[in-house]
Design a protein around this nucleic acid. Structure first.
Lengths: 257, 257
DNA sequence: TTGCACCCTGACCCGAGGTCAACCTCAACG
DNA sequence: CGTTGAGGTTGACCTCGGGTCAGGGTGCAA
């Protein structure tokens, strides 16, 4: 009749009855003697073992390792404790990092793109590009980074230079407007020619087009990035098509859909 | 032919292919279109969704909640984010606390008893009690705390006062010696009478006997605590029996085994 | 003696994936 | 042109740390 019941033992160490029985089944904690009615009776040594096991389990040690650990000699045990502690510290850091990521997720989709890219998008918005245009650009970048992560930084650098060119910025804004035109508007061909001329006159600029391409074996990937939005207007599609045709005519290698 | 394969998508968000498919099965992320060969093809919108889902999942949000959460409107979403963040912070605190308790594990006493109780045991040792006596006391305390946690602090307070009484301390030490006597040694009855007299003369002292008892409906619990060690010597058993009989004769209610 | 809380065993369920099998497809190489 | 290797497809079962349910036995107070 000496010893506490499983419910009291469980309450003492702060777990459920089922958990204690689970530990017995796994051999992690020895089963105590039973009383005349078959109830388990826990003595102080059993409680000690339970507390030790529970503390390790709560710290994330796999249950299968806890038994051997508690049976090991003191030197081995303290070494393992230090190990567990390092693990915990690392976990804390990870959680903290996640919390910060969530923070960023709350004020925009910064989580998807590096800060540098986000800054560029903000600069675009400041330069007069419409919100849906920068949004489309952002989506494209997300894809680009997924496909060619190793070339993305270079691409951003080229893009930064491009934003330094006021003529190009004006062209970009006009292209954004063009999306709303009729597909057969003659101004589209005109705009495509002007843009192609500007690009061809400025070889560094061409790298925003060819830079990523060089990294991908197959041109299909470029197509994906350039044409990522199937929801583009017909006018925008035609503008892109004409623009690419002009570049191709000038000897720039651009894959076809 | 536009879109990335599942492997690329998985690599981008930092999970395995299987995990992405798992998310599809749970309806957490919509399945993208298939290409002519049956491969899933992920576009930028799919990747965006995947990253969002992954970020929430990594923060510990149950997968079943993530879908609705991402479909909810912005206000609801940011509220949920704040909630998740609070949860994370709490988790970090918990982990930190666990790391601290790990330190106490190396020493069994500290794991099972509050610092105050451990200090009292050390004081007992300093007062000349034998090691096995303090060990037995410790075991009794562990059980007592498991059985009657809400009365344990009061009990410790009474015990502290008891240690301030030099006469009582001397009696305790003598009782410890008595365990080695023959069970029919006449000094045992004498000692029991002296001890009972000391207790009865000092009502506050009686609380170390009756204090815990008041908290338990059934006297059996007291018995458990007082007689927890079945391994006591016959002499010690007889001393306890006579001592209890004296108190009972004086009108103190003490349960029988 | 009737409740009620607690104990017993055993079997199945859960989340968040991992593993294995059997087969299909793509890209590159000789 | 065939082969090879990597990566895609489904489906079924495994894992860990327990939770839940079913069907029954105990202990104690009213």
């Amino acid at each position: 009749m000496n010893g506490v019941t499983i419910g009291q033992a469980a309450a003492f160490v702060g777990v459920t009855v089922k958990t204690v029985r689970h530990y017995h089944k796994l051999g992690l904690v020895r089963e105590p003697e039973r009383d005349s009615s078959g109830y388990r009776r826990y003595g102080s040594a059993d409680l000690l073992r339970l507390v030790q096991a529970r503390t390790l389990a709560a710290a994330g040690v796999p249950l299968a390792e806890i038994g051997p650990l508690l049976d090991a000699d003191a030197a081995l045990f303290t070494a393992a404790l230090a190990d567990v502690e390092r693990h915990l510290t690392q976990q804390i850091e990870e959680l903290t990092a996640r919390r910060d990521t969530l923070h960023r997720l709350a004020d925009g989709d910064r989580a998807l793109l590096p800060d540098r890219a986000v800054a560029l998008l903000e600069r675009m918005a400041g330069l007069g590009f419409a919100a849906d245009e920068t949004a489309a650009t952002r989506e494209g970048w997300v894809l680009a980074r997924a496909l060619v992560p190793e070339g993305f930084d270079d691409y951003l650098t080229h893009f930064e230079h491009a934003l330094d060119d006021p003529g190009l910025v004006a062209l970009g804004r006009r292209a954004a407007e063009a999306a709303a035109w009729e597909p057969d508007d003659p101004r589209i061909a005109e705009l495509a020619a002007t843009a192609a001329g500007h690009y061809l006159a400025n070889p560094a600029l061409l790298k925003t087009v060819t830079g990523l391409q060089a990294r991908t074996e197959a041109g299909t990937r470029y197509m994906l990035i350039a044409h990522h939005g199937g929801e583009r207007t017909p006018a925008a599609a035609r503008l892109a098509e004409l623009f690419e045709a002009e570049l191709r005519a000038a000897g720039i290698r651009i894959p076809r859909p």
